[in-house]
Amino acid sequence: MFENLLTHTDNRIHHIIINRAGKMNALNRNTLAELHTAVYDALNSNQVGGIIITGAGEKAFVAGADIAEFASFDSTKGEQLARHGHRTVFNMIENSSKPIIAAINGFALGGGLELALACHIRVASNNAKMGLPEVSLGLIPGYGGTQRLTRLVGRGRALEMILTGDMISAEDAHAYGLVNHVTAPEELLPAAEAIMNRILSRAPLALTAAIEAVNASTQNNIDGFETEIEKFARSFDTEDFKEGVAAFLEKRKPNFQGK
């Protein structure tokens, strides 16, 4: 189905593997278009509860964008490139109604780190290297890196990473709060799947509401507290709430239906 992606679903977890290992899984125009389709389809599938995104091979998650594609761009084309990427891929992932985990295996640079930043949770192998090296090309990050990195690690750390363009280790990324967990390479996907399975044992509608409420905290034109109150209140009208309370009182595991 896809030229640059491998996808499969196991036990409600949809795996999206960026499959350009010969190009260090760099994001070209076609790969971004396929990512949009793959994520969109997963979000609209009743068989999918959550998504894990990773890269093919052991060297790279995504080692950046395909620089040759935009080497001749002017400011108009550059703006179109950034706006289209934000709308169709990066913002869609961040605002996904289903949880998305990035399993970072190797280099996550430039657009690759920005892809991981858009995901809700990040797990990295201990050989991963992360950075936003755009200033070395005379650019700045254009797929949300200046905003999402700052939210995660703070202004000082973000500016140091962006202004130097230097890579950081997985251990430093964990210390900065950039990644949630660091594992051995062979444990990366099992660790991501274990986290996702814990998430998917919870009420689906509550997961969506929680993502929306947390995302509202970063948007200047939205009162995050009001969003939380609204989502909290609506939860009381769901069948999942009734099932969750009944299961708690009856001391059994809940059987959520996403209703």
Rank of each mutant, 00 (worst) to 15 (best):
H8P: 10
H15P: 07
H15Y: 11
H15W: 07
A21K: 05
N25C: 00
N28A: 01
N28T: 01
R29F: 15
R29D: 09
R29V: 04
L35S: 12
V39C: 00
D41V: 06
D41W: 04
S45P: 04
N46V: 09
V48W: 04
I51S: 07
I53L: 02
T54G: 09
G57R: 02
E58M: 06
A60T: 01
A68R: 13
A68I: 03
A71V: 08
A71K: 11
F73P: 06
F73K: 06
D74S: 05
G78R: 10
E79F: 06
E79K: 08
Q80N: 12
H84I: 03
G85F: 08
N91L: 11
E94F: 07
E94I: 10
E94N: 14
N95L: 12
S96G: 08
K98I: 15
P99M: 02
F107R: 09
A108M: 05
L115K: 00
L117F: 06
A118P: 09
C119L: 07
R122T: 05
R122Q: 14
N127H: 04
A128D: 07
A128L: 06
L132T: 04
V135W: 03
L137I: 15
G138I: 03
G138T: 03
I140C: 05
G144C: 05
L149R: 01
T150G: 11
R151I: 09
L152I: 08
L152N: 08
G154Y: 11
R155I: 13
R155K: 12
A158C: 00
M161V: 11
M161P: 09
L163P: 05
L163R: 08
T164R: 01
G165I: 12
A170Q: 00
E171Q: 02
V179M: 03
V179S: 03
H181T: 15
V182Y: 00
T183R: 00
P185S: 01
E187R: 03
L188W: 01
L188A: 03
P190A: 10
A192S: 11
N197A: 13
L200K: 01
S201W: 02
L205E: 15
L207V: 15
A210N: 14
A210G: 08
I211P: 05
N215D: 07
S217Q: 13
T218S: 15
N220Y: 13
F225P: 05
E226L: 13
T227R: 13
E228T: 14
I229K: 14
F232P: 02
F241L: 12
F241H: 09
Q257M: 11
